[in-house]
Design a protein around this nucleic acid. Structure first.
Length: 564
RNA sequence: UGGGGAGUCGUCUAGUGGUAGGACAGCGGACUCUGGAUCCGUAAGCGAAGGUUCAAAUCCUUCCUCCCCAGCCA
């Protein structure tokens, strides 16, 4: 990790683990797991959960498992399994041979269920889903006992076996734990352990028609794998008594569940349901749309795994609900990319510049630094000629205060090349400037004036004759509301989608050294931002995604001037 | 109005009876062949009220606010 902080993270979970190690609670073992349900793609929030579980195991010389919690075949698909594996690998985690599936434990879980029935702690209920809900009571009123609650053990056993055998239709019966219908914790009011689902499972096919519920399955999975610290998010706090109850009643190995707060990001939506909707309704191009907070989206956008891991570490672990400013993620990104990205010149919105006193047909090559943060990255040659392209933003006929770029009569530096002075412009019929004319000072070759005169600005440029065309996709936040999940009455989260989150520029010009750049490679276009070659690129046409802009103090000044 | 959690600068986070610190964002400045990077400076916080104590973010009491739970989802 090049950018990860050197000091080890410390938080309340690490404190607990340290304490457990001290008291030898699990024979000195630390073993965690990340248990995704394969019903969607992973997003930045999952990256945090993965980081918490995996980095803790790593730090304490423990082990970590990747385990698919595939207990609901109605929603789960192989596509998601494959994507999740790919994404976690990309983040840089290696679980060795410890890739598991809850479905591999179905038989064992079934046996445990029979054990509980024989112990008089579970029963087959024939109430309908609606009735069960009704019998459960409310937050303030206790529930009522199901009329099927006191069946003889043998009858429960027989019925449960027939459930497994497929003798009953979906929804007709469930297996319930017999706990306490008056518990103030609703999860303890005889929770459902198994439901009948005649659905084909991505891994077990049609072998099963009863599937375990989360609360019943999860502790068993942890127990079977010998997990020591089962880390999950806050909403499962209420479920912990149930997690404990099942394991205690069964008398089997008992890991401890510890809950932490999820990490949210401003201007970002991480609800699986809504992300799925955006994909299905075509609001984005897919799970890997570079605007998506999914790991594959961030990857395609150009984020590095190191950035994400650093971000996870620096935002910390706590039990307080938190929403981190996305600017912090972007800060981690820039910090990382600044160190590693090769510099290059690219003009997004080309404006033709003619240097009138530069010899026609002449071409010079200038040495350009590949990465000022890393001298070992060396230099490259950039061709220069009489006709160039500069950025439209870098010329203004009437310059506002503090505008240091090119303006009639002003002198600026063309990066690595010469000082040029603007002598005039050419306009089209509508009065739009379509060409600027300059003269250059041959004495400033390389970019420095021997007489010591200074310019206030340095512009990037490309030689018109040598530049290659490219498409550049400019991204902005997908939502224009700080908390898009906070949907006001009568609105839909779609109302908060930023209509300007994507701008496609098709006639950009980049320096010739970029020819042959491969998808996934990242560059800094000087003065503009970081860009990543998109897989949509073909041999004849480069497509870049803007990962993030450079910090832009001029944009800030402009904003202030606009407000004044 | 049941139960479970959480409240420290705008945001995230340290602190565990002894000077409330860091980071991002903000503001100001230096430097600069990227208005980048870097560097320096600056403003800003213990949810409230009582109590214990020489001393409280920290311990006690009461209150307030926010989040989660009534799936045969996870």
């Amino acid at each position: 990790m090049t950018t990860e902080d050197s000091k080890p993270a410390s938080d309340f979970i690490r404190d607990i683990v340290r304490q457990d190690l001290l008291t030898n609670k699990y024979d000195g073992r630390v073993h965690t797991r990340f248990p995704p349900e394969p019903n969607a793609y992973l997003h930045i929030g999952h990256a945090k959960a993965i980081w918490i579980s995996f980095s803790i195991a790593e730090e304490f010389n423990g082990l970590y498992n990747l385990r698919f919690d595939d207990t609901n075949p109605v929603k789960e698909e192989q596509e998601y399994i494959d994507a999740i594996i790919r994404d976690i690998r990309w983040l840089g985690w290696d679980w060795g041979d410890r890739l598991y599936y809850a479905s591999d434990y179905f038989e064992q879980m079934y046996e445990y269920a029979e054990q509980l029935i024989r112990a008089g702690k579970a029963y087959v209920d024939e109430l309908s889903a609606e009735e069960i809900r009704d019998y459960r009571g409310t937050l303030t009123e206790p529930g009522r006992l199901s009329p099927y609650r006191e069946r003889p053990l043998e009858e429960n056993l027989a019925l449960f076996r027939r459930m497994r055998a497929g003798e009953f239709p979906d929804g007709s019966r469930v297996l319930r734990a017999k706990i306490d219908m008056t518990s103030p914790n609703l999860n303890m009011r005889d929770p459902v352990m198994y439901r009948i689902l005649h659905a084909s499972h991505p891994r077990t096919g049609d072998k099963w028609c009863i599937y375990p519920m989360y609360d019943w399955a999860h502790g068993l999975e942890d127990s079977i794998e010998g997990i020591t610290h089962s880390l999950c998010s806050l909403e499962f706090e209420d479920h912990r008594p149930l997690y404990d109850w099942f394991l205690d009643e069964l008398g089997i190995y008992h890991p401890q569940q510890i809950e932490f707060a999820r990490t949210n990001l401003t201007y970002t939506m991480t609800s699986k349901r809504r992300l799925l909707r955006m994909v299905r309704e075509g609001l984005v191009s897919g799970w890997d749309d570079p605007r998506m907070p999914t790991l594959c989206g961030l990857r395609r956008r150009g984020y590095t795994p190191e950035t994400i891991r650093t971000f996870c570490q620096r935002t910390g672990v706590a039990k307080t609900n938190s929403t981190v400013d996305i600017a912090f993620l972007e800060h981690c990104l820039r910090e990382d990319l600044n160190q590693r990205a090769q510099r290059v010149m690219g003009v997004l919105r080309p404006l033709r510049m003619v240097i009138d006193n530069y010899p026609e047909g002449q071409v010079e090559e200038f040495d350009a630094v590949n990465n000022p943060e890393n001298p070992a990255a060396g230099t490259r040659k950039v061709p220069f000629s009489r006709v160039l392209y500069i950025e439209q933003d870098d010329f203004l006929e009437e310059a506002p205060p503090k505008y240091f770029r090119l303006t009639p009569g002003s002198e600026v530096r063309l990066r690595y090349a010469y000082f040029v002075t603007c002598t005039g412009v050419v306009k089209d019929k509508s009065g739009e400037v379509i060409e600027v004319h300059c003269t250059y000072d041959p004495a400033t070759r390389g970019g420095d004036a021997p007489d010591g005169r200074r310019v206030k600005s340095t512009l990037h440029w490309v030689s018109a004759e040598h530049a290659i065309e490219a498409e550049v996709r400019l991204y902005d936040h997908l939502f224009n509301k700080e908390d898009p999940a906070d949907v006001e009455d009568g609105k839909d989260f779609k109302d908060y989608i930023n209509p300007d989150s994507l701008e496609v520029l098709t006639s950009c010009r980049v320096e010739p050294s970029l020819a042959g750049a491969t998808p996934g490679s990242r560059y800094q276009f000087e003065r503009q931002g970081y860009f990543c070659v998109d897989p949509d690129s073909s041999s004849g046409k480069l497509v870049f995604n803007r990962i993030v802009t450079l910090r832009d103090t001029w944009a800030k000044i402009q904003k202030q001037q606009k407000n004044d």
